[in-house]
């Protein structure tokens, strides 16, 4: 029961290395990494800080490029793409969920969720429909006119999730999505993410410190000094 959604993995990393330059010092984070992620999979990445887990996230979401190696996501080789093309890629294929929500403070919940749709050719009415639909999914339709400062942490994160799925990307990347939340809100958010994975078939790659979050994943990978160790593999329900 390994590849539910097909033969080809949705994410492929081959021989990927990443070195950061801090001032004049070179800091290698990843070295010749290989990784496959199946479509519809829920993957958790764990490890001490500096282990490179966020780096992997940045690479597969097209925010960053590897120093060496090949990154292929949803059939697109990210290596050959320039800034504008990567942006287009992200708009189409990736949804982001950040630890600190990263909502635009001067826009309402509705307008925040609408942002990714401004990059498409949809007209005003269509955009409105999509936004309301996803706000319904996350249960915040009645708060669409509120500004982020008027929402609780959990509600902000739900708006952020709505934003992440509004243009129907196949991949969701989450960087410590529950890091800033209390236990109850955290559980809600994880439920929501799990639901998106199960019911809507979204591939999820999540970086987390929280063992409870990792429990929801199909596969948990540990990273230490750039080396990947598989820890847990569960059956897909």
């Amino acid at each position: 029961m390994e590849n539910l959604a097909g033969d080809r993995p949705i994410i492929t990393l081959r021989g990927v290395s990443k070195t950061y330059r801090r001032d004049t010092i070179a800091v290698p984070v990843l070295a010749a990494l290989d990784l496959d992620v199946a479509a519809g999979e829920f993957l958790a990445l764990m490890g001490p800080s500096g282990s490179g887990k966020s780096t992997i996230l940045n690479l597969v979401s097209g925010i960053d490029s590897p120093t060496a190696g090949r990154v292929e996501v949803a059939g697109v080789d990210l290596g050959g793409l320039d800034g504008a093309a990567l942006a287009a890629f992200r708009a189409r294929h990736v949804g982001f969920i950040f630890q600190s929500y990263n909502l635009i403070p001067v826009l309402t919940a509705f307008q925040n969720v609408e942002l990714p749709l401004l990059l498409t050719a949809l007209d005003r009415r269509e955009r409105r429909q999509h936004v309301l639909d996803v706000l319904e999914v996350v249960g915040l339709k009645d708060r669409s006119d509120h500004f982020p400062r008027q929402l609780s942490g959990g509600q902000e994160q739900r708006v952020a999730i709505a934003r992440a799925i509004v243009s129907d990307p196949s991949l969701l990347v989450a960087d410590e999505p529950t890091g800033d939340l209390d236990a109850a809100s955290a559980a809600e958010i994880l439920d929501l993410i799990g639901c998106l994975n199960r019911e809507f078939g979204k591939t999820v790659v999540m970086v987390t410190h929280d063992p409870r979050a990792a429990e929801r994943a199909h596969r948990v990978l540990h990273l230490d000094k750039g080396v990947l160790v598989e820890a847990v593999r569960r059956e897909r329900p």
Binding site: A84, A88, A91, F98, N102, P116, L119
Partner: peptide
């Protein structure tokens, strides 16, 4: 800065 990062991440092109 953070907003800009978010917008870029969402796929808004630099221009």
């Amino acid at each position: 800065s953070r907003e800009i990062a978010t917008l870029l991440a969402l796929g808004f092109p630099p221009r």
